[in-house]
Design a protein around this nucleic acid. Structure first.
Lengths: 251, 251
DNA sequence: CATGGCAATTGATCTGCGTCAAGGAAAAGG
DNA sequence: CCTTTTCCTTGACGCAGATCAATTGCCATG
């Protein structure tokens, strides 16, 4: 969990089949020559768990998306209060065309591989390729919806409901990533520490811990170690979340 | 303050000089024939204070932007808990290309005029006119930033800070709408009831009221009636907001 | 001018979550 | 292996903000 800085090129870049920019973020409707152009300007970056990708206010020369691993988007006040404003899972896009500096701290919470494009080159390509902008608009609108869903969670839900909402979100996302496995319930690993969960949910880490224990006592979830979670009955979890049919994941 | 439904055409459509779609939302870089096309498919709608523009889940056949007046975007849980996820001020865009139904309740809190485009026609125009999509992407990214700023407010700020953040946001926005008037401080009218403020801030209306009174007692603001606010010293208000240089307005 | 309705204020009390503090469990590192 | 560090859990207590309840002020409208 070293938190040093210099990003390193990943030793073995994943092949294009793994690149969400191509398959999800940008190129769903691109022509082949546009794809070729994207290929020319793309490169991979690897980060270790705990490493800072960029800090808020720093120049950010690239945009890109997560290939594997998990990163967080956080904001910090001068007095140290922190708030997570996004959780970046594989295929999520990072960075903003037309902006010089990062608006938030981006941190890898697990080992992370990103597929990147130099910002300038990407912007120029966008001008010539409407599909890329279209796709980016769709993704941004999805993120906006997710952020707004989360405003309801932050502003109006109880601690227990917040935890349940978070777990349900992860469970659903995980379930779509690898379907099947409905046998003994949904099983996944929490991508965050209790503290990071607290920052995401507007709680303290103690409250997160207590509510996790409470959900365990009530049989809504099972825990093996600190991170490994089993949800025997997703419906019960969603019920505990006071769900307004939430589901989006703020990324 | 009737809350009936049927939208009415505004009696006297504002002239094009007032239309933010043309001037802000979409056409900053459009060619004249694109402008002409936009003119052909645009129309105005008027709503009375309290009227519902659309309800969440209902089909929404148009997109558009606010010309004058104020509207809110809210989400409600089955048990009645409500959360405001956006405040729509003049020039803000509403609606989502590519989506059939409204994701949130949109309600006019004052008399409201909107400049609208049929969704289908707008989408077709977007395909032929990259600039429109580009502009929409920029606006959406701004909204996303604002929503994320607001997540910090909701999750980590105290009641007093929340109120102060809200007032500072309104004050700033109002100041840019009509500059000058720095004489006796910034003066504006609150666009929301205490209850709506509470839904925006994740508080109860009683707490909003108490904190408003506290800010008045401390001389940070002055109140004439319930809605009319004077801020003698914006710096003091921002200080009270525990400000992390916020400023965006979630819309 | 009275009257009814809605919005806001203010007070009294309760409680969910934060704060402070002390261990315990699990990785990381030698 | 043991040591160190990091992360997590649990308890005791206090407080900010919710809840419950009563008034007050402000338009409307008859």
């Amino acid at each position: 969990m070293a938190a040093s800085r210099a990003p390193a090129l990943s030793p073995k870049p994943p092949d294009c089949g793994d690149c969400p920019i191509r398959h999800r973020a940008v190129c769903a409707r691109c022509e082949s020559d546009e794809l070729a152009e994207l290929e020319r300007i793309k490169f991979y970056r690897g980060y270790q768990a705990g490493q800072v990708v960029v800090s808020a206010g720093e120049p950010m020369g690239f945009v890109g998306s997560v290939v594997s691993g998990i990163a967080t988007l956080t904001q910090t006040m001068e007095d140290g209060r922190r708030s997570m404003v996004g959780l970046l899972l594989p295929s999520d896009f990072v960075g903003r065309p037309g902006r010089e500096t990062a608006a938030y701290d981006v941190t890898a919470t697990t080992d992370l591989v990103m597929c990147c494009f130099r910002r300038g080159a990407f912007e120029k390509l966008m001008l010539r390729t409407p599909n890329i902008g279209q796709r980016l608009l769709e993704m941004t609108l999805d993120e906006l919806d997710a952020a707004r869903e989360w405003m309801l969670v932050l502003g109006r839900k109880t601690a227990r409901e917040k935890i349940a909402s978070f777990l349900a979100t992860i469970a659903r996302r995980d379930a779509t990533l690898r379907p099947g496995a409905a046998d003994g319930g949904i099983v996944f690993d929490l991508p965050l520490t209790r503290e990071a969960m607290a920052d995401y949910l507007g709680l303290t880490l103690e409250t997160v811990s207590r509510q996790m224990s409470a959900l365990r006592r009530d049989g809504v979830i099972r825990l093996q170690g600190n991170r490994h979670v089993t949800v025997p009955d997703l419906a019960r979890l969603i019920e505990a979340a006071g769900d307004d049919s939430d589901g989006g994941l703020p990324g």
